[in-house]
Write a protein that binds this DNA or RNA. Sequence first.
RNA 1: GCCCCGAUAGCUCAACUGGAUAGAGCAGCCGCCUUCUAAGCGGCAGGUUGCAGGUUCGAUCCCUGCUCGGGGUACCA
Length: 655
Amino acid sequence: MSILQTIKSRFATALEPLTDDVGPLLDMIRSSQDAKFGDFQANCAMSLSKQLGKPPRDIATDIVAMLDVSDFCEPPEIAGPGFINLKLKDAWICERADAIAGDDRLGVEPVAEPKHVVVDFSSPNVAKPMHVGHLRSSVIGDAICRTLKFAGHKVTSDNHIGDWGTQFGMIIYGYRNFVNEAAYAEDAVGELARLYKLVNQLSDYHAAKTKLPVLQQKATQLQAELQQSTADADPADKKANRKLKSQQKGVKDTLDAIKSAEEKIAELDTDAERLALANAHPDIAKLARLETSKLHAGDADNQQLWSQFLPACLTALDRVYQQLNVEFDLTLGESYYNPMLADVVSSLKDKDLARDSDGAVCVFVEGHNAPFIVQKTDGAYTYATTDLATIQYRVNELKADEILYVVDKRQSEHFNLLFQTCERWGFQNLKCQHVSFGTVMGPDGKPFKTRSGDNVGLESLIDEAISRAGQIVAENDDNKPGGPVLSAAQRAEVAEIVGVGGIKYADLHHSRDSDYEFQWEKMLATTGDTATYMQYAFARICGIFREVGVERRSLTESAGNLMLTCPEERALALQLIQFDQAIEGVLNDYRPHVMTSWLFETANKFSSFYGNPNCSVKNASSEEIKASRLILCDLMARALKTGLSLLGIETAEVM
RNA sequence: GCCCCGAUAGCUCAACUGGAUAGAGCAGCCGCCUUCUAAGCGGCAGGUUGCAGGUUCGAUCCCUGCUCGGGGUACCA
């Protein structure tokens, strides 16, 4: 039983005479925010006050009188309005720490009722280069999978790739008309990416050409209206003010659209060769769409091209996943579900969930204005249909108990509709959750867009991170007191571990809901609250063992004599025996940043320990204390390594 | 128009879902390498939590109104 559970069970006994429902009160027991208040605090007395009609401090006194924790706590203290503060006995902390000292799971018991969880994450569109926006889903999803597995659940990670969308029509069109055979033979994916970009650019050019006059006219009109409203404006009239604001925004949006269209036109007008291409393919957008429809309808030539392109695209994705050390149990893309879509629609119709509306087949969900469209007017299916088919497959074939979707929060309405439709469709026992995350913003404060050209590519980000880490590794190694200790191969290995770990950590340590601003320096930082800090702490512990001449592994058998001789040791041990709370915190609402915080705090406490000469391991005042500190260090190393590994971040023994 | 979400230190973000004096990291300033890796440690400074009310023992968190910003809103995925 974990420490918190132990404390809660004692409180349950003490609280029972006072109230019928102890559950919510037990949730008010937590570790203290500030060490000076002790180790744990219970805030239940205050909330009972009203219910019992007594002053909270009196209630706290009553609770303490009933509370029996003397076997592992100092006498409880009542403070402030009625907080009950607990301080663990040192001997008890040692006992707990000794108990997990030889344990690779650090005291975390596997869950009593394992579930089968399918985690749907990453899900890039193939044949388009991945950019930093794709990082979040991959990294968060991977961390969740690892943590669920560690906790004892059965996990299936599934990369629901976009391998059936409109981009294939564009590539097919590009391949037929613009392919450079030599380049394709040399680097198929690079050439396909070029073709995608080219077709996109030419389509955008024509679209911009047609849109521009319309936009200009609209802008003139809106500006005139705005001028009129400004002239009429009554500053006291709130409604008018609001209208004015919205008009101003309308003008600004239109002007932005004009600017963007002009840029797209200018891009080609300065490039005679491209311009000629554009003029030779005036209907390129329509024709590319047609290729997609033909593909979906089973056209043999297009299907042949599709199956020729796909493996190359998957290889390109694999390269990135390999660098990121992210693995999938399944990669079932949208195309896999294509044969099931017609049945999904007819099943929805049979159950009276879906009906025709304006020529499309829709499911209407209460509370939502927009319908869930499962088949378009032209007969094509949508991603809504695919998602339903996917759920059906995951429940019927994979026997999933729960599905997690690690997807951008902007799609929350889609998932709302999906989950509600799904429940009415007959999957009442399935638990679905949209594990949403915020948008990665550009330096301009606007989201990275999937279609615009100049996003920071994921591969170049990773390469840059490794190369910068390499410089830092070399610099630090060169400056070591006794001279460099790393071989060239070791330096390269450490650079990769530090570089990739840094990128992942930079993403994971944000609360997943919030948007965050992408900054090169932050992604590549190696000081402060970064993966490097933890990795460095780990390497320093390994250094202690090297220095003292003891194998870490040899300690796992001889554990059992931990002593707390200074405050730093106590703080460290107390932190380490609460690893299970970090795991629980992550899985409670799938928030990996709970783990990053725990790791940072832990490493922080270690660094204080390490930096204090009174806590020296090598020069400990007795052999017993030295042995005790070695046990603590080993526990620390194991905690850091395990915690980081659950985030998909590696460690190095020397750096 | 309707529906969501956000606003916290100069910057980037936390705050265990209503708890004690709102915390970190960067950036800035001051100390610490003949002693286990200075990618570090110790310290200083930095705040009317967007604004105005309300709810209660207690509010960054819940309610109302306002200001600013973002997202979504019938056939893109």
